[in-house]
């Protein structure tokens, strides 16, 4: 925690009416319309919606990769020391590890790019590799790891420069169902240990409810934000919570919002 004074009552991320239009020569395509929600520091907010609803675009806007065409986006609160280069970590659906680097060297990539002191970074990377459960695999190449282990390495990489915000774009979407459940629990543990703010994009409704302190629901065609739901389930969350009545009612509400009855 940075303990910035901005934390007092002010959200860490504030989106008000954020809009994004993609223009090709022939037509305009509304990718995100009127996204309005807050994320407090230390929260894990899920963004759920069908494919093509603009959730990846929204994430990339927050990451600073796309400019937005309307509305306001504030990160870090007024007058805070949020550095967009250093304070964002990303995890994608594919692990995107460099095939020619060992796990440790892969995890160190952001530190190298930012020019951080490498001795310290190396220490930190080892600690993170431990934390994501890859101890003993530091010197392996990506092809020697399973899909789940590769994604663990990608998570460690997103944390190595100690960013305040982690953006995850369907990070477990390419994994089998069982590994995915396991990674959900791991992510919650990592989140609680690292105290980071996480924006988690998924199309899995159960996953969104299970992980999130809050769920933002986006619908497709036309892309728009349907609702924000606070998830009031006890922590630490356990797998048997998925059979709770309250879990079910949250999920039902989201199904309803997305037009699946």
């Amino acid at each position: 925690m940075t303990g910035a004074p901005a934390a007092r009552g002010e959200p860490f991320i504030r989106l008000v009416g954020v809009k994004k239009v993609f223009r090709t020569r022939r037509q305009e395509f509304l990718a995100v319309s009127d996204a309005t929600f807050d994320v407090n520091e230390g929260e894990l907010v899920s963004i759920v919606g069908p494919s093509g609803c603009g959730k990846t675009t929204l994430l990339k806007i927050v990451a600073g990769l796309h400019p937005h065409d309307g509305g306001t986006l504030e990160i870090g609160g007024a007058g805070s020391d949020f550095d967009p280069a250093r304070d964002v970590g990303m995890v994608f659906q594919q692990p995107l590890l460099l095939k020619w680097r060992r796990v440790l060297e892969n995890v160190l990539l952001p530190a190298e790019i930012l020019g951080l002191p490498m001795g310290e970074a190396r220490e930190r990377a080892r600690g993170l590799i431990d934390m994501v459960g890859l101890a003993g695999h530091e010197q392996k190449y990506p092809y020697e790891l399973s899909g789940g282990m590769q994604q663990r390495a990608a998570i460690a990489r997103s944390l190595v420069h100690d960013p305040r915000l982690i953006l995850m774009d369907e990070p477990f979407g390419a994994l089998d169902a069982l590994t995915r459940e396991r990674m959900n629990l791991e992510l919650l543990r990592i989140w609680e240990q690292s105290r980071k703010t996480i924006l988690f994009v998924t199309h899995g409704i159960a996953e969104a409810v299970f992980l999130g302190t809050r769920v933002v629901v986006l619908t497709a065609g036309p892309a728009r934000m349907a609702d924000r739901i606070d998830i009031d389930l006890p922590r630490p969350r356990t797998l048997d919570m998925k059979t709770h009545e309250r879990f079910g009612s949250y999920a039902r509400r989201i199904y309803h919002l997305l037009g699946v009855e």
Partner: peptide, 24 residues
């Protein structure tokens, strides 16, 4: 996506070339 990942870190064109493009 890999380029996006390093672009969030404000990687220079040269860093992208040396660390990703060339070895790849």
């Amino acid at each position: 996506d890999l380029v996006d990942l390093v672009r969030t870190l404000r990687a220079t064109q040269w860093q992208i070339f040396v660390k990703i493009q060339l070895p790849g």
